[in-house]
Design a protein around this nucleic acid. Sequence first.
RNA 1: CGGGAUGUGGCGCAGCUUGGUAGCGCACCUGCUUUGGGAGCAGGGGGUCGCAGGUUCGAAUCCUGUCAUCCCGACCA
Length: 592
Amino acid sequence: MRMTRLLARTLRETPKEAEVVSHQLLVRGGYIRQVASGIYNLLPLMWRVVQKINTIVRDELDTAGCQELLMPILQPADLWKESGRWDVYGKELVRLKDRHDRECVLAPTHEEVITDIARKELTSYRLLPQNLYQIQLKYRDEQRPRFGLLRGREFMMKDAYSFHASNACLDDEYERMATAYTNIFNRCGLETVMVRSDSGAIGGSESHEFMVLTHIAEGEQESGENVVFYCDSCDYAANAERAESQAKPATLNGPEGTSELIATPNATSIEALHKDFGFEPSLILKSLVYVVDEEKPVLALICGHMDVEETKLKNALAANTIRMATADEITAWTGSSKGFIGPINLPANITVVADANTEALTNFYVAENEPGLHRIKANWGTDVPKPSTFLDIRLVQVGDGCPSCESGALKETRGIEVGNIFKLGTKYSESLSATYTAEDGTEQPFIMGCYGIGITRTAAAAIECFHDKDGMLWPMAIAPYHAMIIPVNPSDEAQMALATQVYERLKPLNIEAVLDDRDERAGVKFKDADLMGFPIRITAGKKAAEGLLECKMRGDTTAQDLTLEQALAWAQEQFKTWTPRVTPTPELVAAK
RNA sequence: CGGGAUGUGGCGCAGCUUGGUAGCGCACCUGCUUUGGGAGCAGGGGGUCGCAGGUUCGAAUCCUGUCAUCCCGACCA
């Protein structure tokens, strides 16, 4: 490709709406343009990146025994009503009507349609297992699209679905897909970690996310949306929404004595109780009021020095939605006021959920459920009704003990979720009555798994990992082109001839190059080359007359002078072995 | 959905307080000079100032409404 023909206009200034590095560089480098909030044109360079990722995905999945197909984006509402998700999916689901007033959706995911395929086609156990995938656009009407390609309303996704006759078979497939995913991301030049995750609204028993860990330079926008906790000595890693841990040792047993009430006016926070009255935070039983599914009040109890992880609480309650109650709701339900609510003399309609760590508390502090009053030296059973169950609802903290090994401590990092795998079980096969005839002649629901990869997000994540102040540094495998050939002065015959020669000779070597044949000054070409971020740069300049080319990799500070033949050999070697180096290797990856 | 901000040639911005013929830098086109890290000079094209009402002799500017975009939060297979 010649630069004069390439549709990729670079911008010197960053459009003001772009906040994260990947978004800024993709726009500046002429890879994408915004059409509407969360919706982008993928210009030729970006499309090449997407196709390269897709090729790797296809190769690995086909090797793993999956089959590619294509399902419709526009789907009838009937299927979604049948699965029940028409009612529970919410506003994120794009709904529309056709000319006959029939309700339709733009698919955010394809469980309904794939399950419909399975129930019609996979009639016998002899046809199982099956793993089907597609790569196409998904639509999710995000309340707040942001971060460019990292969270759009329309995005490219690979989604795969597997069907099995037994859980053991699903378990095997799950492992096979985990391996395939690791291979895919590695081939894309990305280090990922597989973390345990919350299954969320999709349901199912087990799920993992593949996270690209982001380490952000000073002053840059934090782009990893997920907080990941990982063990510093074993391979445990989990999304904060679901991470478990052994809490750091803390004082849980107060001095013995007789329980009594003391006045704590205006002390509505743990900090205030600690500062003004000397209460040890870990000895305070913190009470938080939540509203579950917009109707039911729930009191969550946790040690004062810990925080509630709301996703864990939501799952513990089998709730669809959960939020903190407002001050007015708290007053109406408890008769107390915010800051003084407690598990004492509570109305019977309020469910109490206590964190597991609170069970060991003795002689603790607790609000009396009366404004301005706290009880000290309280104990379960005698002063405070003991909850029937204690559950893990706390957000783990850095430094907590690893739940998986004896010696490790948890650390925290940010990650971009580029893939996930779920064991769905029979959730969809049951709601959609999708069964096959088993060996014994009975009808059985399919046991299912589903597996996603955000293609466009993966591309953006690569930039978040690999960039410097001048632009992108694409990993070789997903770079839109492998090389930029720069004749410094295109009107100099020797330079142009040599540059064209390299360009032509690279083609049969499968090294894809762009020849910057523009009549621009050298500075402009170098700046654009750095911005666009192709790995190999070969310059035909002053020494072209002697037959020498200046060769360097993106990110290198110095170039080496090579003859045409040497340059071709050098390029082939780099093509095989080079990887971008910019951000410090994440600790976790280094530890593994 | 709550809070905050911004809409002026392709991109970045000024002008608005105090209404009076729409400006700057970059990009684009032409010519000349230049040619190793975003050149210089000269000339040129392109904007009904997000949209709709209103006030006014006159609105980018004041008022009302509306739409869009972005940020923080909530939300999120």
